[in-house]
Design a protein around this nucleic acid. Structure first.
Length: 267
DNA sequence: ATGGTTGTGTAACAA
């Protein structure tokens, strides 16, 4: 089974590219982030025509996560237990954002996750991000406490570069989010709860990234960040036989600023 | 040059 994750930065502007890529890469399950649309705007028929079932949550033009699967899509869950809420502005009732959707696909509990962007050090968004990751760590840890053999994949855009090699130049990030000690500790806590980065051994750095900013010629200059991850539970990690970051897909007109990440699972 | 691009939706905001 081939499992993939991709921050597409708007599914409506990328639907042709995603559909073509799915067929080319022979992917069974694809987790999408930043679909940037409401549920009724999601181009579901494009994917059902290719044999995929679709689950999506999108509340407005921000965030939005989805799962496409051709190996079953059962027990869909919008948001994870304990997922923190966010209030966009003063006076607006805090709500759970469209940042997490889970389903069982071919025996694997797959979660498509879009971790909040912390924006700046000291920004309330960073506190939200850290609380979000801590809540995820607690819940995902409970899943393994209940069933140590559970096959769980926590996949998506984590908005964290866990190691210095995961950015092109650490000195550029000395006062930035994504690399700060609290963010790295929050990521490490998920790993220590039992979830392994299954891609890195198959796509080692330095210089291997999943995201390149649209501005400042970051992609041709090879100035990127590794911030998209597939974290596997122990039982899932044992099944991983290969992985790749499809850098080709970042090329050309109409590319997302993120590349897709693919994991091959054996029996 | 204190920005640089791309997305939402059509002014700003988000990344």
């Amino acid at each position: 089974m081939r499992l993939a994750t991709w921050n597409v930065n708007s599914i409506r502007s990328r639907v042709d590219r995603v559909a073509a890529w799915l067929e080319r890469q022979d992917v069974d399950v694809l987790a999408l982030q930043e679909t940037k649309c409401k549920d009724d705007q999601f181009p579901e028929e494009r994917f059902t025509a290719l044999g995929y079932q679709v689950a999506h949550v999108g509340l407005n033009q921000w965030n939005g996560v989805a799962l496409l699967s051709r190996v079953g899509l059962d027990d869909v869950q919008v948001g994870f237990p304990g997922q923190p809420t966010w209030s966009a502005k003063e006076g607006v009732e805090p709500a759970v954002e469209a940042r997490a959707i889970g389903a069982t696909c071919g025996g694997v509990r797959v979660w498509s996750l879009y971790v909040p962007n912390g924006r700046q050090l000291g920004d309330p968004h960073l506190d939200y991000k850290l609380a979000w990751l801590e809540a995820l760590r607690v819940t995902a840890g409970e899943w393994l406490a209940q069933d140590a053999e559970a096959q769980v994949a926590l996949v998506g855009d984590w908005n964290i570069a866990p190691q210095d090699d995961d950015v092109w130049d650490m000195s550029v990030f000395s006062h930035s989010t994504h690399v700060s000690p609290p963010e790295r500790a929050a990521f490490r806590a998920v790993v220590e709860a039992g979830y392994t980065d299954v891609v890195r051994p198959h796509a080692p750095g330095p210089g291997v990234y999943t995201y390149w900013d649209y501005t400042q010629l970051r992609f041709p200059r090879r100035e990127g960040m590794r911030i998209d991850f597939v974290l596997g539970s122990p039982a899932l990690t044992r099944r991983v036989s290969g992985a790749l970051i499809d850098r080709q897909e970042r090329k050309g007109k109409g590319a997302s600023d993120h590349a897709p990440v693919v994991v091959e699972l054996g029996e």
